[in-house]
Design a protein around this nucleic acid. Structure first.
Lengths: 145, 145
DNA sequence: CACAATTTGTAGCCTGTGCTACAAGGAAAA
DNA sequence: TTTTCCTTGTAGCACAGGCTACAAATTGTG
């Protein structure tokens, strides 16, 4: 019983998540950029993530193939409904994690960085617990920013 | 200013972390297995992570190359001092994250799963905040396990 | 319009992590 | 001891996500 099936399941989950993390980051970014500037181009994502345009193109291709994005050659990148849904969920998780970190006393700068990494690993149940904590124990419901 | 350097820095950090996450998982596992059974073999890691022995072998090779592990053909896998240090840090982060999730009301099962993913993204500052919260707000200082 | 600059695409290479299939070493049992 | 079984290694494949270099399309300017 030394190598429990539980630990196996945990790690398998972790591994499978990596490409999903990228998907979440990209749909969030596309959503941000579309909201901010009206459209999202490859070059915008290149600047956002600090990677080459080739990397962006290939990841966008995969996300098109998987139904999160849609685009055509030399055209802007758009979210599908599936992508929009994922973006909304990701943003919510991100915001909740960020708020939790702030509530626990983490600085804004570090909270921003850590939330980027943590958000992808927060399950529904954990998210609910975070929200409950923020409601009951962090009565900072308005403009303290 | 729409594509701030800050977001770039965050994502670059996230990307670079992936191989480090694997390193942390492996040194923790090796440490666990050595403690539990006296030695760690490839087959133990194979069972622990639920991946093929080939994958384990290759990752172990990389971690030997990077100075976290040492081994010889058909011999057990051992931690270097560097690996032991990393294992200790990882374990501490893992435990703190796990405890925080429990303190916020997450079930043990889900806390175990989520902590696996979250632990790799918790900075020193955030970890301190977690510890402070656990000390001040979760007076469960002894054997509740 | 024509040229220049920017953007996007494509070819080709690297590393990391996953796999199966097969070969070889080491340990246990007949 | 020999045979069998478990463990480990190696070859070779796939995919994700990094890159540079070069080509093509689009956009902007003279």
């Amino acid at each position: 019983m030394k190598n429990s099936p539980k630990s196996v399941a945990r790690h398998q989950r972790t591994r499978k998540d990596h490409s999903m993390e990228t998907a979440e980051d990209y749909v969030e970014a596309v959503d941000d950029i579309v909201t901010a500037t009206g459209q999202c181009r490859v070059v915008d994502l290149t600047r956002h993530f600090g990677v080459s345009h080739v990397t962006v193109t290939r990841i966008v291709s995969r996300l098109v193939r998987e139904g999160f994005l849609q685009t055509e050659p030399y055209r802007p990148i758009e979210l599908t409904n599936k992508g929009r849904t994922l973006a909304a969920e990701s943003r919510k998780r991100h915001q909740t994690v960020y708020d939790l970190l702030l509530a626990l006393g983490v600085s804004e700068r570090i909270a921003g960085i850590d939330a980027e990494g943590i958000e992808h690993h927060v399950s529904q149940e954990t998210l609910r617990c975070f929200e409950r904590f923020l409601k009951t124990s962090a009565p900072r419901t308005d403009g303290s920013t």
